[in-house]
Design a protein around this nucleic acid. Structure first.
Lengths: 331, 331
DNA sequence: TTGTACGCGTTATCAC
DNA sequence: GTGATAACGCGTACAA
């Protein structure tokens, strides 16, 4: 690996000058710059990012951290592409970690990211009082939370209006004539799940419908629980005529349960899922969903983080992106 | 951030001793070790990975690079989880990059990984003579190729028996009585695409069937092309009775085309896709696929890479994992 | 067994 | 404008 020293020798200048050229310092005369650039070119020189980060102060290290529950969840895959594309456009690299909603893993990766001297970290907190995340903020590391809320949030954040998205979906079902609507929710200690459930309740209330406890089931945002909860709902003496599922993975599970019973969608049972899926159009029938702008969430988060690096003192920005009801044929 | 020096002061030893404790050197008396560990504990000390990598020689830097075309492709998402889980179990971090099959992007990220001093890199070459990858190998950076082949491969590699997988799938279709079988292939300059196509041809030949050119279409492994190619096939005066699609994304596209025409699967048209999908079971009808063990590919690649770091001189290992035909109801 | 001192490849602070 | 030189935090010969 060639280093600053090699370039300096070849260009017959000091390493300080080479460093200035790399960092676009204006205090270098064009002629010198040309010579140095030529030398770098000839040697195929690339600055060593590791040495650079060791010396450089925060905000200029060109490395972001991103911790998500699971990259196999299409929502987070899309979100992470949003982050990465913005990072790439700004010559930043991103270190991606999967926490599996596991606090121990989150802690491990957070320690890795700190000790890698990342400029900042983007993450959905595992829950709203995640102590590790608070520690991070306390220590002055730029954090942008996405998707989920912290109970006391002083950082930049990007979220989606979950309550409204759910409200619209349920309203749509009601307008279609459904009166018995089943809900498959997620863990209630994460804000998104609560907000979506609240949107569901709001919509029912707005139409003077009561929410029977029997129709509200709690899953864990994973596929298996979607299937199990759907089975429970369909086994009811008076089963719902429509089911609203609060995330993508559980929706897949619910569809499994429905197909297994040879029920027809939407004739026997209508379905709306939270989160769009790349293959929603390829389902039979195409699935009606509340689409979250996951890619845009990632983009916005990365933008916000980069802005903060430029301007550490700026006030925290709270972004609330709008979800969109995409009506296809499953209800 | 606390450093070696802080710990050394608190424990009243030299930084060398602290360093030895961290690196489990045996040349430190138990009593001293205890004292140092106590000091580290009290200060909440974590070694600085950046400084460490700057000093440490290859193989002990606890960082792997992984470059894939697109994390939104479920195959690569699963593969990357395989890599990451092995890495995590060995206290390694992974730097994940999306190349979008773009040589320029691949080059950019490869430069990043080099200059981040990763211990080694796992990647599917964009094509079989990828010059950037050859350069990497030449420079002595441990590389493990996955999924796709290099034309001259001297490195560790993990692949799937694509030819065999395709053969089995087509054989299954033939046994079901299909005689006009359409194929939606991918870019023929990647080995997987060629191998799968060859498996298709093998199966036909084995049953003395001829492969009509009209039934063989070339896509680009993306969703839109799957749909377009399916449309072409279905528009034929004598359309195929079955379609075999050579990757997951194109399969989704093909399903779109089929549903749009209100064709019934498998009555009107049978479908088999290469690559399993997490939601294959939730489709109606559940999709028959050739499942690649993507997670295992990732695991094996990471294992191989870690082994090589331990033992740089070992002979290159070539792993060929078996795909599995999973028969559901789409044919 | 432990400590001292150097170097890894940079950036930044001084002089000149 | 440019050049020495001191950090950054760590690993490791070499000395003690």
């Amino acid at each position: 690996m060639t280093s600053l020293t090699d370039v300096a020798k070849r260009a017959e200048v000091s390493i300080a000058t080479v460093s200035r050229v790399i960092n676009n310092s204006d205090k270098v005369v064009p002629e010198t710059r040309r010579i140095v650039e030529k030398a770098m070119e000839e040697l195929g020189y690339h600055p060593n990012r590791v040495a650079r980060r060791l010396r450089q102060r925060g905000g200029k290290r060109h490395l972001l951290g991103l911790i998500i529950p699971d990259i196999q969840n299409p929502f987070f895959a899309e979100l992470s592409r949003g982050v990465e594309d913005v990072a790439y456009a700004n010559q930043f690299a991103v270190m991606l970690c999967n926490s599996d909603e596991n606090l121990k893993k989150e802690k491990f990766y957070l320690d890795v990211l700190r000790s890698e001297s990342v400029d900042g970290i983007i993450l959905p907190p595992i829950h709203e009082r995640d102590p590790v995340v608070y520690k991070l903020i306390e220590d002055g590391i730029p954090v942008v939370t996405v998707d989920r809320s912290l109970s006391q949030c002083t950082t930049d954040k990007v979220e989606v209006d979950n309550r409204r998205g759910a409200h619209e979906a349920v309203e749509h079902l009601i307008k279609l004539g459904h009166r018995r609507i089943g809900l498959i929710a997620g863990r209630l200690n994460v804000s998104t799940s609560r907000d979506r459930k609240q949107g569901f309740l709001d919509a029912l209330a707005a139409h003077k419908l009561s929410a029977s406890e029997a129709y509200v089931r709690g899953g864990d945002f994973k596929q298996a629980s979607g299937r199990a909860m759907a089975d429970q709902l369909l086994d009811l003496p008076e089963p719902p005529t429509a089911i609203f599922v609060l995330n993508n993975l559980m929706t897949v599970g619910a569809l499994e349960a429905i197909h297994r019973r040879k029920l027809r969608i939407p004739a026997d049972i209508a379905v709306i899922g939270f989160d769009d899926l790349p293959w929603a159009e390829a389902l039979d029938p195409p699935l009606t969903v509340v689409r979250q702008p996951a890619y845009e969430v990632g983009q916005a988060a990365a933008d916000l983080l980069l802005k903060r690096l430029q301007e550490p003192k700026r006030a925290a920005t709270h972004l609330l992106l709008l979800p969109k009801l995409i009506i296809r044929n499953s209800c």
